[in-house]
Simulated scan of single mutants.
Amino acid sequence: MPPERSTRQRPAYVLCVAAAVCAGLYLVTFGGGAVAAWVPDLGKTRAAARVLEVDGDRTAGSVVFEFATGEGRTVRASAKRRLFEPGAEAGDTVDVLYDPQDPAASARYDQKPARVLPWCALALAVAVLSGAGAYRTRPGA
């Protein structure tokens, strides 16, 4: 007859599994979103833009901004407000990305997806350590 395990390990096992699952979901959701937002930015050029006009509400409005290309050409462009920086107002300076081949049509707000990467590294560490804890405290081991 096998020796009986203590039931004290059961809450630790459940906690480790829950932490590993939550950290993994965070990593997939936000890490995947950061990578998906970063890939289209490859090959784009950054510039500082001045917001000229903000109209409408957050869901249906637009933002008009102006920036100078690397060649010194001034370009005026617009974007949907929901895709722009949340608190942008006329006169603000924001970072934009643009394709040097067609700056006016391709200009968009730089969302800086790399800001979430340190949190994804933390979530990865929590997921790995919680998974190891769940493995060590699993029932029947």
Rank of each mutant, 00 (worst) to 15 (best):
P2Q: 14
P3E: 07
P3I: 04
R5M: 06
R5N: 04
S6A: 12
S6L: 10
T7S: 13
R8T: 00
Q9M: 03
R10K: 12
P11C: 13
A12V: 00
Y13R: 12
Y13P: 00
V14E: 14
V14C: 08
V14W: 15
L15F: 10
V17T: 00
A18N: 09
A19V: 11
G24V: 07
L25P: 01
L25W: 06
Y26E: 00
Y26S: 02
L27C: 11
L27Q: 11
V28K: 01
F30H: 14
G32I: 00
V35C: 02
A36I: 06
A37T: 05
W38C: 02
V39Y: 05
P40Y: 12
D41F: 03
G43P: 04
R46P: 13
R46K: 12
A47N: 07
A49W: 12
R50L: 11
R50G: 06
V51W: 11
L52S: 04
V54N: 00
G56S: 04
G56F: 01
T59C: 01
T59V: 08
T59H: 05
A60P: 03
A60C: 01
S62V: 15
V63W: 07
V64E: 09
V64T: 15
F67R: 07
F67A: 05
F67G: 05
A68Y: 02
G70Q: 14
G70F: 05
E71G: 15
R73F: 02
R73T: 15
V75R: 02
A77F: 11
A79P: 04
A79Y: 13
A79H: 14
R82T: 13
R82C: 09
E85A: 12
P86N: 01
G87L: 09
A88V: 11
A88E: 07
A88D: 09
A88C: 04
A90F: 06
A90L: 02
V94F: 08
V94P: 08
V94Q: 12
V96N: 02
V96G: 01
D99R: 11
D99N: 11
P100H: 01
D102M: 08
P103N: 03
P103A: 01
S106Q: 04
A107H: 13
R108H: 15
R108M: 10
Y109T: 04
Y109E: 04
D110G: 02
Q111I: 06
R115N: 13
W119N: 12
W119R: 12
L122C: 09
A123C: 00
L124S: 14
L124H: 09
A125P: 09
A125Y: 06
V126F: 13
V126L: 14
S130F: 05
S130Q: 03
G131T: 00
G133C: 12
G133P: 05
Y135C: 04
R136D: 04
T137W: 09
T137F: 11
T137M: 10
P139A: 14
P139I: 01
G140M: 05
A141G: 13
